Amino acid sequence: MSVQAEEQVVAPGVRDGSVASGAPVQAGDADAAVGRALGDLNTNQLRNEYVDQGSFLYLSDFLPADATQRLIDAANALMPEVNRNFIPGHKAGGSVSRHTIDRLQPWIAELYRSPKLIAWLEKITGDKLQLSPQDDPHAYALYYYTRAGDHIGWHYDTSYYDGRRYTVLLGVIDDSSCILDYELHTRDENKPDEPGAVQYPPGALILFDGDKLRHRVTPSREGEVRVSLTLEYVTNPNMRPWRRFISNMKDAIAYFGFRQVFRKALQSATGGARKTGGSV
């Protein structure tokens, strides 16, 4: 279901010092952009920070300005494709799945598959990572808060895969008052829960183990716009049939709609691809 009333919402550009909207960013440069992002980072130090925080890392300035602008342009272009959902007491907002992204904004898929990004994430997490299967609509997806009250309540990004699933959040647009609240160490009996909060700007990165971080996004206000991009990586792409059904239902009801979820699921049923759900 498109959000025709929101087609005219155009978000602001990236923060001061960025290139203007429409600046040339050539196809095939996603991996190079990641390489520039990683150039000055101390990976060993960040790995230690990630471990100390119970599989959580926040970088306020990650993507270069031109790559960030590319994501902003894509998010604005995809406004007519947003599928909105409302679950009383839990969430309200819009989503654009990887299937629509593949069709209309494939540069995002290129960013998701960046060998430099995956290699760096493996160093931080200490795990061998794989791409999510082709029928997983959450593999990379955009999440839109464009109406007053859009939010998501406390949750984990529960993995329905046989292995672990890692979430990467990239800030795309944040002309909002929304806050990402989170709690560290909730699965560790030897450490007290540690609350935190962040309002991550365009180009920022957050990395966490979806089964370990309890988090939410506070409600948006009238006239605000917030868009984030999630990238999901797994350690084992297999999923048991009953978990696949639960995942499909969750995706259809809470995110992308029955038509897209089950059409894609049926198309890939013979390929053994698997899915998961949940993000901000």
Score class of each variant (00 low, 15 high):
Met239Leu: 13
Gly17Tyr: 02
Pro195Lys: 05
Val225Phe: 05
Leu78Ile: 11
Leu170Tyr: 09
Arg263Tyr: 05
Ser132Phe: 09
Val168Gln: 08
Gly126Cys: 06
Leu142Trp: 04
Ala265Trp: 08
Arg243Met: 12
Tyr156His: 14
Met79Cys: 07
Leu71Phe: 00
Tyr58Gly: 03
Tyr200Cys: 06
Pro24Cys: 07
Phe86Pro: 02
Ala273Ser: 15
Ala92Tyr: 03
Pro192Lys: 13
Ala141Met: 09
His155Gly: 04
Gly35Lys: 04
Gln45His: 12
Pro137Leu: 08
Arg187Cys: 04
Ile101Thr: 10
Ala252Met: 07
Asp181Glu: 15
Asn190Ile: 00
Asp150Lys: 00
Gly17Gln: 05
His155Ile: 03
Cys178Tyr: 01
Ala92Gln: 15
Asp61Ile: 01
Ile72Met: 10
Val96His: 13
Arg243Gly: 13
Ala197Asp: 11
Ile101Asp: 14
Ser114Thr: 04
Val14Ala: 14
Lys128Cys: 00
Ala67Met: 15
His90Thr: 07
Arg113Ser: 14
Pro192Gln: 10
Val217Gln: 01
Pro201Asp: 11
Ala75Asn: 04
Gly278Asp: 07
Pro115Thr: 05
Thr276Trp: 10
Phe56Asp: 05
Leu231Lys: 06
Ala265Asn: 12
Asp73Thr: 13
Glu81Gly: 03
Ala77Gly: 07
Arg15Ile: 06
Val19Ala: 12
Val34Phe: 10
Met249Trp: 11
Asn44Thr: 12
Gln134Met: 14
Val51Leu: 09
Gly271Glu: 14
Phe56Cys: 08
Gly171Thr: 04
Pro137Ala: 08
Asn44Leu: 10
Asp188Gly: 08
Asp188Phe: 03
Arg274Ala: 15
Leu63His: 05
Val225Met: 10
Pro219Ile: 04
Ser114Lys: 09
Tyr233Glu: 12
Ala33Gly: 12
Thr158Ala: 10
Gly28Asn: 08
Glu222Arg: 07
Asp136Ala: 03
Ser228His: 11
Gln69Tyr: 01
Asn248Val: 00
Ala148Val: 07
Ser176Gly: 10
Lys275Asp: 09
Ser177Cys: 04
Glu7Asp: 02
Asp127His: 12
Val25Lys: 03
Gly257Val: 09
Leu131Tyr: 11
Gln260Arg: 13
Asp66Leu: 03
Gly223Asp: 00
Leu121Met: 15
Leu131Cys: 02
Tyr182Lys: 06
Ser21Gly: 13
Leu229Ala: 06
Gly203Pro: 10
Ser60Asn: 11
Ile72Lys: 04
Pro219Arg: 06
Ile253Glu: 14
Gln8Ala: 08
Gly28Phe: 04
Trp107Glu: 12
Gly153His: 08
Thr68Gln: 03
Pro80Ala: 10
Val280Trp: 00
Lys264Leu: 03
Arg103Asp: 15
